[in-house]
C-alpha cells in the first residue's frame, strides 16, 4: 500500500506515535473494550496509577493490567470555566474530579464528571473508561445516588 502511494508521488503517512506514550498502551486497549484498568506489579502486586517506568514499592519492571471495580469517592474536584484546549473550550463549564478508588486509599484516578451536578467531596461515584476514535481514552464518573444498589454492577 505504502509503495503504491509512493509510486504516485504521495508521501506515506508516518507511523502514528502516541503523544501520551507507550506506558498507557494497555489502558488504551482496555478502554476500547470498556474496561477500567490499572497496572499491577508482577512481583509485589502493588496497584499503580498512573503508569510509571517501574513499581514504586519494589522497583520491579513487570506489570499486568487488571480491571478494577470502578467505585470510589470524590477526593477533590474543579469546575473548569476557561479552557485553551480546542476540544474543551466549547464545552465549559465541565467538572474534573480526582477519585479515591475503593481498592486502595493509595489509588486515585482523574476523570470527568458526567451530568453537570456540582459534586461534594466524599460522595460515591462509579467510573468507566471511554475510548473514542484516535483520541486518548478518558474516565467518566457518575454520581451514585441513594438507592442505586446496582451501581457497582453497571
Amino acid at each position: 500500500m505504502a509503495d503504491a502511494a509512493t509510486a504516485h508521488g504521495v508521501q506515506p503517512a508516518k507511523p502514528q506515535v502516541r503523544a501520551w506514550g507507550d506506558e498507557l498502551a494497555g489502558f488504551e486497549e482496555a478502554s476500547s473494550r470498556g474496561r477500567l484498568v490499572v497496572r499491577r506489579c508482577d512481583a509485589c502486586l502493588h496497584l499503580q496509577w498512573p503508569p510509571r517506568s517501574a513499581c514504586q514499592s519494589c522497583l520491579g519492571g513487570g506489570f499486568d493490567w487488571v480491571e478494577i471495580g470502578g467505585r470510589g469517592h470524590i477526593y477533590t474536584w474543579t469546575e473548569v470555566h476557561r479552557s485553551s484546549l480546542e476540544d474543551f473550550a466549547g464545552s465549559v463549564p465541565y467538572i474534573v474530579c480526582i477519585v479515591e478508588m475503593d481498592e486502595s486509599p493509595d489509588l486515585r484516578m482523574l476523570g470527568l464528571l458526567e451530568g453537570g451536578t456540582v459534586p461534594s467531596i466524599g460522595v460515591p461515584v462509579h467510573g468507566s473508561a471511554v475510548s473514542t476514535g484516535t483520541a486518548a481514552p478518558t474516565i467518566r464518573w457518575t454520581l451514585i445516588t441513594d438507592g442505586d444498589e446496582f451501581a457497582e454492577n453497571r
Partner: peptide, 28 residues
C-alpha cells in the same frame, strides 16, 4: 506522558486548573 496522556484528555492544561484541585481539598 502524564500531561498529554492523562491530564489533557480530561481537560486539564493550566496551573490554575491543577492547583484548584489542591485548593478545593484544603477548603474541605
Amino acid at each position: 506522558h502524564l500531561r498529554e496522556g492523562i491530564e489533557r484528555p480530561h481537560g486539564l492544561s493550566t496551573p490554575a486548573q491543577l492547583y484548584a484541585l489542591l485548593c478545593q481539598r484544603h477548603m474541605y
